[in-house]
Nucleic acid binder design. Structure first.
Length: 425
RNA sequence: GGAGACUUCGCCUAGUCUGGUCUAUGGCGCCGCACUGCUAAUGCGGUUGGGGUCUUAAAGCCCCUCCCGGGUUCGAAUCCCGGAGUCUCCGCCA
């Protein structure tokens, strides 16, 4: 949610920023609508408050007269009806304003360029593509090595699901545990949240209403409050701190969570989205920071650096991209992707997406801090990032560390956990 | 799933039976000031959050906020209905 005050005071700046990710004419239309609703809202509030004030005074006069033994005067009912009507009107205006405002994306940061995927910019590269004579892709490798059973996964959950088996399951689990430990070392507090969330969490994170249909909802019969399966731990973490005033001294507040992520998006049919690259359920470890506004820049750099250190720790070749406005998620001001090299497709694939949300999510979720010295509450800044998504990591490990005989070298840091340095058929 | 108790401005708490200076009590914590030649004690003052209005800004003023949403009433923390949550006991249980 954007700052209404900013729209009032500097609409041009807001419009200019939004135009990086939306049609300029559309931006203008929506902002105009918002300002109209805002004016209407304030007019109604003034009117209602005035009427309430009048009625309160009357009630007090009534009590006073009664105490004094004077016959109190009952005023007409007209005022009441009028307030009820105005309130109904206000409710509607506010609902419309809220919907319109919440559909508006965040303002891209200054250094984020307009445009879509094609405008993303690679800003860093680590390592080099390994020389592999005859490249096998990760689907073939995991089948040969018995790491992932797609057939049985589909038998269990339908298309878009898989089952890790044997060394594959152990590798997946080892990765998750290794990531958890690295995040703890980096000073993040470990959370294991519920996987079924109430709608308020989805709204707070900025995923609703836009992506309402992209998550799995429980039917009202089995869950009257309509919980949904979390699409990322980000939703849970943000929702967990809804409506809170965080202790200023504890900022930046650094937490992380491991959860499976459940998404309805269609499983990949592209050549570069086979196997475990895209599915309805995958594992991800997510890091998150709530910061003071002035801490956000440093936090973003720190989080990207941390996520990269994980990929480096595994020995994978990757690049860092600064996403263009149209390709980063709507709730974010700036997003940096860490993309690993996939030898089979000759492309880089995202394993982590680290973003700075400004106060956009905090405003929706009403997460604040108290200004030191002052009494003012202000919205915190939120930052989130994957650290990391294992369903993308595993294919990269298989492909980058494959050997001519079809075996795969285990990243050194995971060897103690698997009791082997090599995956063999 | 059933029964009961409970939910008050950071924490604890008075107030709810019997509706009206509740414009919410007191303690703890926190902030400021005073005093004592150090951070202890004492005294005084301040301390929910949100919105509106005015303003360069602050102050002021107004409205809402006693778990949430309705209702009754001239008037609701207080009465009525619905919901959420916490605790205790019982039942059920892979």
């Amino acid at each position: 949610m954007l700052d209404m005050e900013l729209i009032r005071k500097d609409r041009d700046a807001v419009a200019a920023a939004l135009a990086k990710r939306m049609d300029a004419a559309e931006v203008d239309r929506v902002l105009e609508q918002i300002q109209q609703l805002d004016r209407e809202r304030r007019r109604l509030i003034s009117e209602i408050d005035g009427e309430r004030q009048r009625r309160k005074a009357e009630a007090r006069a009534y009590a006073q007269a009664k105490r004094a033994g004077v016959e109190p005067q009952v005023t007409s009912d007209d005022g009441r009806k009028q307030v009820a009507e105005l309130e109904a009107e206000l409710d509607e205006v506010q609902a419309r304003l809220r919907t319109t405002m919440s559909e508006l994306p965040n303002l891209p940061a200054e250094d984020v360029v307009p445009g879509g995927k094609e405008a993303n910019r690679v800003v860093k590269t680590f390592g080099a593509p390994p020389a592999i004579e005859k490249v096998r892709d990760h689907v073939e490798l995991s089948r040969m090595l018995g790491l992932v059973d797609h057939e049985r996964g589909v038998k269990l959950g339908g298309s878009g699901f898989w089952m890790y088996t044997g060394l594959g399951a152990r590798l997946e689990w080892a990765l998750i545990n290794w990531l958890i430990e690295r995040n703890i070392e980096a000073g993040y507090e470990f959370l294991l949240p519920p996987h079924l969330l109430l709608d308020s969490a989805g709204f707070a994170a900025g995923q609703f209403p836009k992506f309402y249909d992209d998550v799995y909802h429980l039917d009202k019969q089995s869950a009257p409050r309509g919980q949904f399966l979390l699409p990322t731990a980000e939703t849970a973490i943000l929702g967990a701190y809804q409506d809170e005033i965080l202790e200023t001294a504890k900022l930046p507040l650094k937490v992380f969570a491991y959860t499976p992520c459940y998404r309805r998006e269609a499983a990949g049919s592209h050549s570069d989205e086979r196997g475990t690259v895209r599915g309805h359920q995958f594992n991800k470890v997510e890091i998150f920071q709530f910061t003071l506004p002035e801490q956000a820049d440093a936090a973003l750099e720190q989080m990207v650096g941390h996520a990269e250190s994980l990929v480096e720790g595994l020995g994978l070749h990757y690049q860092r991209s600064l996403l263009a406005a149209g390709d980063s998620s709507a709730s974010m001001r700036k997003t940096l992707d860490i993309e690993v090299w996939m030898p089979s497709t000759g492309k880089y694939k995202e394993v982590s997406s680290v973003s700075w949300g400004g106060d956009y999510q905090a405003r929706r979720a009403a997460i604040r801090y108290r200004e030191p010295g002052g009494k003012q509450t202000r919205f915190v800044h939120t930052l989130n990032g994957s650290a990391l998504a294992t369903s993308r990591l595993l294919p990269a490990i298989l492909e980058q560390f494959q050997q001519p005989d079809g075996s795969v070298l285990v990243p050194e840091v995971l060897r103690p956990r698997l009791n082997t340095d090599r995956l063999t058929p």
